[in-house]
Amino acid sequence: MSDGMVIVCRCNDVTAEEIEELIDSGVTDIEEIKRLLRVGMGPCQGRTCMPIVISILARKTGRKPEDIPLPRARVPVRPVRAGVLAGGDDE
């Protein structure tokens, strides 16, 4: 399916092939895959990529997708300007 050009994480330009390669090298923990490839660590917080990463991981390891826990979503839920969060900036 993947020729190295299927982008799974659009925030950090991670392809399906890179994810499959990493899993093949023995890294099968979703938390480790996330950090090594930076999937889900961009502004969208993994909304786009995480379900796809989990389905690839499930397929390659023979696990059920529901048995793979989603990495913790970080605050803020959506990107917010630092000036607004620090106070004194209502823009």
Binding site: M41, P43, Q45, P76, P79, V80, R81, A82, L85
Partner: peptide, 10 residues
């Protein structure tokens, strides 16, 4: 940095 968006806290 006031104009930069915060995307993560941990």
């Amino acid at each position: 940095l006031r104009y930069a968006h915060v995307i993560r806290q941990w």
